[in-house]
Design a protein around this nucleic acid. Structure first.
Lengths: 141, 141
DNA sequence: ATTTGTGCAAATCGTTTGCATCTGA
DNA sequence: TCAGATGCAAACGATTTGCACAAAT
């Protein structure tokens, strides 16, 4: 979709989400939204930032990921008990999770049909339905 | 279902799974399988054990939960990045997850229909499909 | 000027591990 | 007997937090 985002684009997106466009937020947003949909962990994003010459601490990466999530710019995906993934695709969709190499792959929302959900318990409302399809390399042959 | 399991029942179950029936495993199994399906975290099970006068360390609870899981007596459920849940119901089913109080509730397998899954990427096989319906108390009115 | 964000290091929390000691078959 | 289990405390890894300093409005 987006080939490259200008500095101005990023500022707009941050302001639109009610976040001050600081240098680190802009840089991180650039890494996150610069090239298609992504799934990152804090560690991975921090490493990328450092490798890209962006000066930012791991603590700030964590803070920023959570702020982005609250602001609706990211979505958190729970598939692994030890690690938090953040998805730049905030729309309706589900995931393949490759348990062998811990990689997440998007499944477009309309490629999974969840039918006949039971009524939630009394006084409860459905917030979100997550479908995780766990996959692994088949070692036939 | 099971009103109360005898010591012998527990031993049988453990042996059947290829595990030596030690005192702590028997005691923990008693807590887990004594009364219907349950969802526990290591912390919770350890606390219950201590309260029930069962002498067992937290480390052993962790070990035991994992051994039971490998032996097919339990199933691990990933719904919260910070905490691991173990489900005594190992059959095909899904979950409601109450995000307000971190409670898991079973949804019978045949109450959720997942249709038209996309084909997994090349060389990959589906291991399991997890559906988590996140719910929270609705604060209307 | 004031508010908000950042970096660092220390603290936290769930979970795992090393190792000496016990226990079940 | 003796392989396998357990307990304890220390180690761990991911994440959060406290606080002094820096940057944005």
């Amino acid at each position: 979709m987006s080939a490259h985002l200008t500095l101005h684009d990023l500022d707009q997106r941050l302001r639109g989400a009610g976040l001050r466009p600081t240098r680190q937020r802009r840089d991180l947003a650039g890494l996150l939204y610069g090239d298609g949909d992504r799934h990152v962990t804090a560690e991975v994003l921090h490493r990328e930032a450092v490798e890209a010459g962006v000066k930012v601490s791991l603590a700030t990466v964590y803070n920023t990921l959570h702020q982005f999530t609250e602001a609706g710019l990211l979505r958190q995906v729970v598939v692994d008990a030890q690690r938090s993934y953040f998805d730049t695709n905030t729309g309706h969709h589900h995931h393949f999770y490759n348990t062998a190499d811990q990689e997440l792959i998007d499944i477009p929302g309309d490629h999974v049909a969840v039918g006949s959900l039971p009524t939630p318990p009394d006084g409860m409302a459905i917030e979100q339905v997550d479908v995780v399809v766990r996959i692994s390399p088949n070692d036939d042959r």
